[in-house]
Amino acid sequence: MRDLARGPGLRLRGDLTLPEGRPLFRSLDFRAEPGVWTCLLGASGVGKSTLLRLLGGLEVAGTFRGEASAADGAPISGRAAWMAQSDLLAPWLPVRENVAFGARLRREKPDWARVDSLLAEVGLKDWAGARPSALSGGMRQRVALARTLMEDRPIALMDEAFSALDAGTRARMQELAFDLLQGRTVILATHDPGEAARLASRAYVLVPDPAGARLAEPHRFRTPPLRDPASPDALAAQAALLAELRKPPVGEAPEGRAP
């Protein structure tokens, strides 16, 4: 494996109030363990992306009072890579330039040897000169992964990074990403309990609440990732996370009651 510095532990504490005055979360205290994958589950709109954006130092709708910090005391800014549900490839640039895009944006000279070796690692050596539009969705997401690795950052923030892929491609991408991101602190927002059950060292569910979303007790796994989806630990985790996700939101009538 790569000899990489371990990613730092991360913490996000605070309150976020939406522009219309409703709290999105109140006294939230989210922690990510150093050097492993932390998965963040929850319904759409509960604030998973917002939490990731705050960690990445991006603008969010509303006012945030609190802080995002790394356990080692150094700032997060400049140490994180970003991966989203859509591949975010620049359609006007060939694959090779897309992988080197970060260096270009910082006006640095790209390390082309590394670009080519990363493209080989994600299995796209022969596609270096192709435009993104010539690639399938799975291939494009592999280019995005190569671009993330090219950044060589100790922290990876992934917002539904595998959600747009079909089941088979998704499983292969998860394995590839897990393998290539060893030692980094990865936070993956997802709505798929199965994905969390395979990849996470710790999995949180963000529970909606009119008074502000809160984190449920994290699921604790007995075996290390990457887990076989058919293993008892993965199946148990999937069931437990799904059960947490299925709970009706606070303040709504429980299921089965007549109107």
């Binding site: 970003w82 859509s86 895009f101 944006l105």
Partner: peptide
């Protein structure tokens, strides 16, 4: 694309 701009911001553009 706002997503591309977000990514660029995180990359330090």
């Amino acid at each position: 694309d706002p997503g591309l701009l977000d990514m660029a911001r995180v990359m330090g553009a």
